[in-house]
Each structure stands twice: as structure tokens, then as C-alpha cells.
Amino acid sequence: MPLLEVKHVSKEFGGLVANNDVSFVLNEREVMGLIGPNGAGKTTLFNCIAGHFPVTRGQIVFDGQDVTALKAFEVSRRGLARTFQIFQASGDLKVRENVMVGAFMHNPSRSKARAKAEATLEFLGIADAGDHLMTELPVAQQKRVALATALATDPKLLLLDEVAAGLNRSEIEDMVALIKQINTDKGVAVLLTEHMLEMVMVLSHRVIVLESGRLIADGEPEAVVKDPEVIRAYLGDHIVSDEEAAHA
């Protein structure tokens, strides 16, 4: 069952083409990786799908509904949650309150929202951070709170933008396990962009590749990284470790 259908989406800023005729389908319960060199237009595509930017051309269908013209808050109410690459917390809200904001989306009552937030924090293993301010937490925990807040909205699809940035090796492993858990236990589909190719390979059922705003590959992770065009476009002019180059 397709959950998200992106059909011929283009996004232009003035004369600059950030996304050019991008089409792909993401199925229910699927984990999809979106990769591509810096400036390929990954975050722009996220912003278009989530309704933060209006698209220039094309159509986006989510869960059987045309969401192309909807605003971000309307898209998210239909079950599409996201995290942001740069997460700035001014520090006014405590962690539990932060997650409650997400939980309030489907629970107008405070006690229910609170219970939902507690359960989500528990699920992500940060139940003990509830009374702290966001700014008091280390980066890895802040990312978990952002994930918890998005998850508290009971999404069908989760867009994760560079969720491993700034994490060390063991924290990344924890994050991978967490995303797997979210996908299998909660049945949430995931679309993630990541610099850390390794993480995308481990997690994704399928990978799509953007280059200069165009989609150049779509398939199984192993097949995609062997695709000569992908290697040329992405791996070729990027810093690649020997191991990865040999593997490709």
C-alpha cells in the first residue's frame, strides 16, 4: 500500500531549481533512505512534503489524500511528523511539556496528553529527563526528545532530517536501534536523510538518491550503491572511505 506518493515535484526559489521533477512512492511500514551530496535538495524536498514550502509544480499524495496545497500544520494533522536538522530550543519548555505539545494534537485534555507524553518518553528511554529543560540535556538526548515529540502525534510517517548529526559512534548505534524499534513496534514508516551512509544502509528497505535536485536512483540499498550513476554523482566526487569505495 503506498503511503506517500511524490509525483513530478519541482521547487524553484527565484531562478534556482532546488528540486526538479522528483517522483517516488513510499509504502506503509517502509523505511526509506534519501541520500545525495550536500546541496542536492534533500531538506528542500522534506520541507515540500511536510508543507513548509509550497511546491512550484507537481503533486504530493499522502495516505490517499492530495496534500500538495496544504500547510504544514494541516499535513502534520494527517499523520506526517518530522524532525528538524537544526533543532533550536530556547529552553522555556521542560522535556515533558515539549512532548506534551505533540501529544496534544489528538488529545485535547491535559491529563491524557500528559499520560501519552510519559508513555512516549518511556518508550524512547528518556523517562527520567521529563522535569529538565531542553537546554540542560546533551545533544543525543535532545534529539531523542525531538523524536519523542514527533512520535507523540501518532504519525503514520516520520521524516527524519539528519537525526544522527553531532552524535558519536555508540549514540548512533542507539539511534539506529531506536528507529528500528519505532518502525517495527509502532508500524511507523520512516523517510530519513543522513550523511552517515552506513546508517542509511543498515536501516533502509529502499534508498532514493538526489543529485542537483533530480532523482537519479531508486531501489534496494545494495543495488543503489552499485549504480554507476550514483557512484559518479555522489560517491565519486565525495570523500569516500576506502572500505566503502571497495564495497561499491
Partner: peptide, 26 residues
């Protein structure tokens, strides 16, 4: 301040883009 609106406003103050992604009509 305990109400849904109260929480939503604080989220908007914190970061309006994040708030919108949580279904809040800022």
C-alpha cells in the same frame, strides 16, 4: 497555561516551524 492553547503558544514561542510540524495553526 495548562490548556492545549497554552502549550501550543509556548511551542510557537520556542520555535514556530517546529510548532507547525506538530499540527499547530500558529
Amino acid at each position: 497555561r495548562h490548556s492545549r492553547l497554552g502549550f501550543q503558544l509556548r511551542a510557537i514561542k520556542d520555535n514556530e516551524d517546529v510548532a507547525k510540524s506538530l499540527g499547530i495553526d500558529a
